[in-house]
């Protein structure tokens, strides 16, 4: 039986089946696991560090991480390719319909998954429902100088274009929506469309191996759309019908 979620008043939660607007291609054959994307993302998006004990509890807040898996035993041991894992900006996102506060909604304008911090009440339903485990929760006021005195000076580095999240708020990769807005605003002020490659996300910008490409997946001639047509392309957990906007290119 199929349920029409739109009839369940979950309008906006699952909105599209089309190919999407923004997309990313990650070449796992090139990714060296160097963590440059993770650091760049943290610096761009004011992501807090949680320190050793909380990190041990699995509360670290990386919006992007490199996964790797082992196969076999020494000496026949193999490591899978590094898989940078970030919010897949699903077209049919499992996180969206479960939010009681409509804090994680689908952006119809940019066709990505939004996390609206001021609406979030911290139920963590979305994180529990995310098959990619890419949502992270602020268990403490990590960015409050009253809790952490060192934030007073570290906060000089904060990106003013991104909200500093407080305790009890869920967060995740936004496809650097602040950069999308900035590029669109600039293009509009010059009376033109955003060009392919004019801007990119912080992770793609930093990646020394050029493994990450970002752009308009719905423009067939854009670099990201061309790469997504590669015979090596695959989507993670595609069988769940989440319509991920991140395409991975296999090794080989």
């Amino acid at each position: 039986m199929t349920v029409d979620l739109n009839k369940l008043h979950a309008v906006g939660a699952i909105a599209e089946e089309a190919e999407g607007k923004w997309g990313m291609v990650i070449d796992m054959d090139l990714c060296t696991g160097c963590q440059a994307c993770v650091a760049a993302c943290a610096m761009e998006n004011n992501i807090p560090y949680v320190e050793e004990v909380d990190a041990g509890y699995g509360r670290s807040m990386h919006w992007i991480r490199t996964e790797r898996f082992w196969e076999g035993e020494y000496p026949e041991v193999k490591m899978s390719a590094y898989q940078p894992m970030l919010c897949q900006q699903c077209g049919k996102a499992p996180c969206e319909p479960v939010c009681p506060a409509f804090a994680t909604v689908h952006s119809q304008a940019e066709q990505i998954n939004l996390q609206v911090y001021n609406r979030c009440v911290g139920t963590r339903y979305c994180a529990n429902n995310c098959p990619y485990q890419v949502r992270s929760f602020n268990w403490r006021d990590y960015q409050d100088s009253r809790v952490r005195p060192e934030i007073t000076i570290l906060a000089n580095q904060f990106n003013p274009d991104v909200t500093v999240r407080r305790r009890g708020v869920m967060e995740k990769c936004t496809f650097c929506i602040q950069r999308i807005h900035k590029a669109q605003d600039k293009a509009k002020s010059e009376g033109r469309e955003v060009e392919d490659g004019e801007f990119t996300t912080a992770c793609a910008q930093a990646c020394p191996a050029n493994a990450i490409t970002f752009g308009r997946i719905d423009h067939p001639e854009s670099l990201v759309a061309q790469l997504a047509r590669s015979p090596r392309a695959e989507h993670h957990l595609e069988e769940l019908g989440t319509l991920p906007r991140v395409t991975y290119l296999k090794e080989g």
Binding site: V38, A39, Q157
Partner: peptide, 16 residues
């Protein structure tokens, strides 16, 4: 391009 250490150089600049 940059590496992770280059990205985090700002936390050296604004180090407590």
């Amino acid at each position: 391009k940059t590496c992770a250490r280059g990205q985090a150089t700002l936390q050296g600049l604004y180090n407590p």
